[in-house]
Design a protein around this nucleic acid. Structure first.
Lengths: 354, 354
DNA sequence: GTTAGCACTCTGGTAGGGAGAGTGCTAACT
DNA sequence: AGTTAGCACTCTCCCTACCAGAGTGCTAAC
């Protein structure tokens, strides 16, 4: 929509671009509407405030800026931010210093997925002063690395399934006939032969071929089914878990001083289906994707901006890292940070899936 | 402090008690200061508003009520709430209907600890319309139920430790010499002999007695040490994880309309050390404990009330369930709910630890 | 095309006034 | 002695009025 309006009144000339950029950058840091005088004072534009006013009026006509009221300064519209983001999205490398700092932090924690997801969220949060998000890398189809059966009592066992990417799933199995740990262990060993590296589909066909006369056949089949269910549940869930950090940063922003707005954002974040859909489309696009205000499908998110970057390998395992903040977001930093962290997460995925 | 003031002007007569109770119950539901006329209208006190005014003045002198300003109604002080809580804490059973409802919900989910902790938090949240909290049951000393070694590549393995209470811990082990899954499996089998049901201390002495000449001796020792570290880390952490739900409920309360206060509460909740200390003292007391406003040690919590109930068996495993809300909290419901849920959690602990 | 000048508009803060709610006191009542 | 009616008083809340300040939009000159 923004682009259509802009095009109708011709492309922006360079000076108009510079002024739009200045308004946005000023407003992002101060959170107060920007007047023509303030622009002339703080940016050496080489023109008078009257000229700036003319251009501001044009930009407003083009739908890129807005007026809270007649005699206030300008604030960017969602379309204005959109233009800004388009203009910088391909040129926002994170400064070397920060790249090194982040790498160092990631080197400090164990090279295990959960730690990395958490660290990704908190790193992004602290660098952007907004909320950091990270979803766990989700494989296209889960593959089992190992299973284990732990006896709880003679009628109950705990099934532990370690997935290839390091996630651990647990389920209870109630035993038809009493079994001790020894039996369970040997069944687990047989199952490990059967399931190692396999997806749900593969396991299903292998289970069908089991010899029903073999010892422990019934138990094998039962636990096999349970493993299958664990995998299917896992495959079905679009977003397993969202790691977030720095929601407190967002609470500090003046646009969320009244907690009602905040509350709606939090509600939206609890909606797994919505997040799943978001992750899906970002992963598909394969690029850093920015959703600004009204561009968000969820009504509760109409006052925030999301900067999301996919990571991982399509068809193998994908996840998303991102920033959530007010639409008045430091986009260059957010985009740079998210893109860099997504690169780091790629390394994790490559490592976990060889 | 409250009690000292009260005592100095003598104990409250029955009528004053009834009126104090009425003020508190009225204020808890409406959140607006309560005037003498409103009390006479809504509660059949059998006296005129003038008399009520006299008594309100006494209660204010006793430090149990307060005035926002000269011509406003009364609101309870922390001391007022404290008196109220003392008067009801031993007589707040949860209605049968709700007990059944909760039991039913708990019956729906798998009898596994994590699910129960989550459910405890969300049940409490929905019944009290405040935030529900639950900490995982923490054993006095963790005992290992089972360990497993999963090969990641020939130099790295993932160590999976299943604790008796069902918690799973994971750690990476880098191997001095390359090992395949077969070797790892046999080492895991040996380790299971060694560690089954044992605490860190026991494992330490057993490790010391290992024959250094046995096959895999070095690997055994290395992984043994790693298990030890996992257990020691676990034992050292006072509060492993806090499950919370319904923080959104708290955001809706008028006292938190301005998000700054909310933010401070959230900050305090992120402080593990503080929570650990809280869990410790509640578990030690063995009873439902209520912290009202200023009674909270954390400055950030001075505007909220906490109702906490311990569960589990001292010396074996303990945790805490609770409610967090504004000091203007529905204490009877909160106390009743928390006490009942804590009873359910006892069943879980008894089951997990026989 | 740019700029100076200026009238105009709107906010935000402050002051004043009236309605309403509620108190605290006094004097009369039981 | 405790209770109550009556009433003056106080404070908030809301509305209005007003002013200063900021910023615009227009016009006419450069």
């Amino acid at each position: 929509m923004a682009r259509r309006i802009r095009r109708s009144s011709g492309p922006l000339d360079l000076r108009a671009q510079a002024i739009l950029r200045a308004v946005i950058e000023e407003y992002v840091t101060t959170a107060i509407p920007v007047g023509s005088q303030a622009l002339v004072d703080r940016y050496h534009l080489g023109v008078s405030s009257a000229t700036v006013r003319n251009i501001l009026a044009e930009l407003e006509l083009a739908g890129l800026l807005d007026h809270p009221h007649t005699s206030a300064g300008r604030i960017p519209t969602d379309a204005g931010y959109r233009w800004y983001v388009e203009s910088i999205i391909d040129a926002t490398p994170l400064p070397q210093v920060e790249q090194l700092m982040i790498r160092h932090q990631f080197g400090q924690v164990e090279f295990a997925s959960e730690h990395w997801f958490r660290l990704a969220a908190s790193t992004i949060a602290s660098l952007t002063h907004a909320a950091g998000l990270a979803t766990a890398a989700k494989p296209a189809a889960a593959r089992v690395r190992r299973v284990d059966l732990v006896s709880l009592n003679d009628r109950m066992a705990s099934l532990v399934v370690v997935l290839r990417e390091g996630a651990i799933k647990q389920a209870l199995v109630s035993l038809a006939t009493p079994e001790g740990q020894a039996d369970l262990t040997s069944v687990a060993a047989m199952l490990n032969e059967l399931v190692d590296g396999a997806t749900a589909d593969i396991i299903e066909t292998r289970l069908a071929r089991l010899d029903p006369a073999s010892p422990h056949a019934q138990l094998l089949a039962q636990v096999g089914e349970r493993i299958l269910r664990v995998l299917r549940d896992y495959d079905r869930t679009a977003v397993e878990e969202v790691f977030s950090d720095g929601l407190l940063n967002v609470m500090g922003a003046p646009e969320f001083a009244h907690s009602e707005k905040l509350r709606r954002v939090f509600t939206a974040l609890e909606n797994r289906a919505y997040l799943g859909q978001l992750v899906g489309s970002v992963a598909e696009s394969g690029r850093v994707t920015v959703y600004i205000g009204e561009e968000n499908e969820a009504p509760d998110m109409r006052e925030v901006a999301l900067v999301l970057a996919p990571y991982g390998r399509p068809g193998i395992a994908v996840g998303v890292v991102g920033v959530l903040g007010p639409t008045r977001l430091a986009y260059p930093e957010a985009i740079g940070t998210v893109r860099f962290v997504s690169g780091l997460m790629n390394e994790l995925v490559d490592h976990l899936y060889h």
